[in-house]
Design a protein around this nucleic acid. Structure first.
Lengths: 211, 211
DNA sequence: CGACTAACCGGACCGAGGTCCGTTTAAGGT
DNA sequence: ACCTTAAACGGACCTCGGTCCGGTTAGTCG
């Protein structure tokens, strides 16, 4: 149907440093003004309250320009995050060990979590705003709570020595509708492999440390 | 500020079978009509294209009525899902073993995954539509792909015998911004505990089966 | 049976995201 | 310098989720 526009795409890039196909001078200027305006507005009234129109207005450009450049709201937020994101990526891809190269893989994996947690904590607001809907209500849906409780209970019963609540969240996350759909369709994994992954994960949650 | 309405709330319940505070006759009638209309429309033009106005119109009621009853769009979708969800919950809470009670906890945990996967697969469309934004684009954001690749690589390097790609998704899921924010603020867990959970999870991913 | 009131109804209204298309302009070739 | 044209611009316009409030009605009590 609608063939994609044959010209400049709206940067969905973010980090895979695909050289921005060098925009026209005015486009580049407006892009900069938009980002600056967005950053300012986000800082002074909260990223969650950022409206596309306000950004356009503050940057003295038309609304259409914002959307052509960033695609949609979350594209703009992502672009705002890009700088921070690149710093983080640099840290784990080429920074000092144990997060960066040089340490054994196991240690690097251990280091990754706290680094990511700290990084996102510092920019929580933007990251939350960039994932459109209430990324909060999600965890309060009764159905989810029921499953969570069920899994927590079973884990305790099975006498795991893991943190039952966190382990339950992990298990639940593995079954996330969006993730499974992505794996099955987009990535084309067979259901059997996803199921095998589940069994492996459960087993790992149940093994007891040496002792 | 805005004190919550002292009267009937918009059912956010879903399954914690809190008896609907018996609505007035007309309200109950309209609720039924709305659900029926919504189900019909969802079936014939896809849950993703369901608009609140269309549902209201098809059910011959005002738009306000839809929102008072279901709160918001996702509330309506969730209500639509409620019946299926209850059947699933019944299955793992009181159905036959090994999913239901009777089997050892470990076996029940193993049984839960495939059951949930199959259940959601059968109602994928509604479940996806109920989580507002593109639950799909989420997994295509470049920054996420970079992290995923990084983790996958490290897992392989560390010579785990888990399915590296799935394990990486699991690890990434544990760090989900929304989840972490929920745990830290809503649930009030200390950051140290979340970090400990990460280290435990990584360790479990790295242990090699006996052999 | 009539009055009283809490809950409900409906649809006008609002705000924000996203699209469209006629107009303007930067960049490169002549 | 001038012409051509792909790309960029801007803001009117559309859709939809969500709110508001004046009018209506089911249920209750005397």
């Amino acid at each position: 149907m609608t063939s994609p526009p044959p010209h400049g795409r709206t940067e969905l890039s973010l980090t895979p440093a695909e050289a921005p196909p060098q925009l026209r001078a005015d486009a580049a200027r407006n892009r900069a003004r938009l980002l600056e305006a967005a950053a300012r507005l986000a800082a002074e009234q909260g990223a969650a309250n950022l409206t596309m129109e306000a950004v356009a207005c503050a940057a003295q450009v038309g609304k259409g320009t914002v959307f052509r450049r960033f695609g949609d709201r979350s594209g703009l937020l992502l672009a705002l995050l890009d700088h921070q994101e690149q710093r983080f990526q640099a840290a784990f891809m080429s920074g000092p060990a144990p997060l960066g190269p040089g340490a054994p893989a196991g240690e690097r994996l251990h280091a990754f979590g706290p680094a990511a947690l700290r990084h996102e904590d510092a920019h929580r607001e933007l990251y939350l705003a960039a994932t459109q809907p209430d990324p909060v209500r999600r965890h309060l849906v009764p159905a989810r709570l029921v499953r969570l409780t069920h899994l927590t209970t079973l884990l305790r019963e099975a006498d795991t020595d893991a943190d039952a609540e966190l382990a339950a969240q992990t298990l639940l996350g593995y079954l996330d509708t969006g993730l499974v759909h992505h794996l099955l369709t987009r990535r084309g994994l067979p259901l059997s492999r996803v199921e095998a992954g589940w069994h492996d994960l459960v087993s790992r949650m149940l093994v007891r440390g040496d002792r």
